[in-house]
Design a protein around this nucleic acid. Structure first.
Length: 420
RNA sequence: GGAGAGAUGGCCGAGCGGACGAAGGCGCCGGUCUCGAAAACCGGUAUGGGCGCAAGUUCAUCGUGGGUUCGAAUCCCACUCUCUCCGCCA
């Protein structure tokens, strides 16, 4: 959530930031409501102060002056009215505020959509083949490790089954990534609820705006995670973290569920865009002055995984128009997939500044006795599984259709090659 | 799913409807004492909103939301969560 004081005091900056994002937001309406809210509060507070004083006085003396009691009855009724209208105003302000995305940081390039994203650099060599490399859906079916038909039979389109060494490869990747982040990068592993409350989803910013992208349980009003981020943000919701407790680093493997309605008809083949996939997610809670460095090192940790797999990847900085709702700055990592002949997004690393912290009321105390401040939150995939599997299959395929397992993974898979 | 108990400040814990957020204890911070430390003693120690340049002032908050009342942590209703026992169960 954006700080309403920015709208109150630096509205032009906000307006400018929203223009860069291509967002049309009702700043005037919010400012107007905010002013009304404040003057109503003044009136209500004055009446309450009077009521408190009179009631105290009535309590002190033993008399029960009827005129005063009658007057206070009126005052209380008026206070109730004012409270009601304050509540209505705050509801509306809140609704509007919840629909405003985060402000992009100054160094985020302007641009209307993904075509304006910037390729920061490309790492590793493009693998050369002396045969025509196959797309993973063909490799997967031939090798008997990906079963699209039966996935669809069970759950409909965009679901799949991994079988045998395919399933094992996925499990190996998850273990290896978690081990790397916990042992080498200082993260604490979490096992999380995969379904969370409306409140949690709102704190992360998935609600109210993106309800149609998620699966939900109507009966209990719960939402399936589209990403572990949605749960982890709530680890410290409504908390004031004591001095010295930051930074906090968490990593978790969870399934991710996405309805992908907006992408209907796109990427229908293979496992690039599916309704359920596994992901290892890194997350940090940091002090505001540390968030830039934290983003850089988060990115570095995600890159480490790519590099050790020996697969060519590139780093993209997202332009303002392509930023996620809660993000102030985002880098994507894409792996090259020679079979389907495209770059695949395997990670997205973002700083959300104090945007989620404000929604979730996550604060920290800089030092003993100091006033609480909002933390900064950052998240990054490390990495998203099915696309890494695609990249491995397509990059490590051989002329005979078999697939070699990257060195880094072999002690986790227990085999060196997947063959027919 | 059934029966019962409970939810108060960082923690423990008290609170006949009127003693400003709330006794007391612990913890924490500052001070006195000491060569230093401990003990002892003294003082301080919530969060958010409004107004104010500020000092400050005012309002709200005792699980959440309503209600009764001049006045509610205290009474009433609903909900949520926790704990205990029973049942079921990976």
């Amino acid at each position: 959530m954006i700080n309403i004081q920015l709208i109150r005091n630096r509205q032009n900056e906000v307006r400018d930031a929203m223009r860069r994002r291509n967002e049309d937001v009702p700043l005037d309406r919010i400012a107007e409501l905010d002013a009304t809210r404040r003057s109503t509060i003044v009136e209500a507070d004055e009446l309450r102060a009077r009521r408190n004083a009179v009631s105290r006085e009535i309590g002190r003396t033993r008399e029960r002056p009827q005129e005063l009691i009658d007057e206070m009855r009126q005052v209380s009724a008026r206070i109730r009215e004012l409270e009601e209208s304050i509540r209505e105003i705050e509801d509306e302000v809140n609704t509007l505020l919840l629909g405003i995305p985060n402000m992009p940081l100054a160094d985020v390039p302007d641009g209307a959509d993904e075509s304006a994203n910037i390729v920061v650099r490309t790492e590793g060599e493009t693998r050369k083949f002396d045969f025509e490399p196959l797309p993973h859906w063909e490799l997967g079916e031939r090798l008997g490790i990906i079963d699209f038909q039966r996935g669809a039979k069970m759950a409909g389109s965009r679901f799949f089954v991994l079988k045998g060494k395919g399933a094992r490869l996925q499990r190996a990747l998850i273990d290896w990534m978690l081990d790397t982040h916990t042992r080498e990068h200082g993260y604490t592993e979490l096992y999380l609820p995969n379904i969370v409350t409306t409140e949690s989803a709102t704190a992360n910013s998935n609600l109210p705006k993106f309800s149609d992208t998620m699966y939900r349980d109507d009966e209990d009003d719960l939402w399936l995670l589209p990403t572990a981020e949605m749960a982890i943000t709530n680890m410290h919701r409504d908390e004031i973290l004591p001095p010295e407790s930051l930074p906090l680093r968490y990593v978790a493997h969870t399934p991710c569920f996405r309805r992908e309605k907006a992408a209907a008809g796109r990427d229908t083949r293979g496992i690039k865009r599916v309704h359920q996939f596994e992901k290892v997610e890194m997350y940090r809670f940091v002090e505001p002055q540390d968030s830039d460095d934290a983003l850089a090192s988060l990115l570095n940790e995600a890159e480490t995984i790519c590099a050790r797999l020996g697969i060519q990847y590139r780093l993209l900085q997202l332009c303002t128009g392509d930023l996620g709702f809660q993000s102030a700055k985002t880098y994507d990592i894409e792996m090259w997939a020679p079979g389907c002949d495209e770059w695949l997004e395997v990670s997205s690393c973002s700083t959300c500044t104090d945007f989620q912290a404000r929604r979730a009321a996550i604060r920290y105390r800089p030092e003993q006795g100091a006033r609480p401040r909002f933390v900064h939150t950052l998240n990054g995939s490390g990495l998203a599984l099915p696309r890494v599997i695609i990249a491995i299959l397509e990059n490590y395929q051989q002329a005979d259709g078999s697939v070699v397992i990257p060195d880094a993974l072999r002690q986790y898979t227990g085999f060196d090659v997947i063959e027919c």
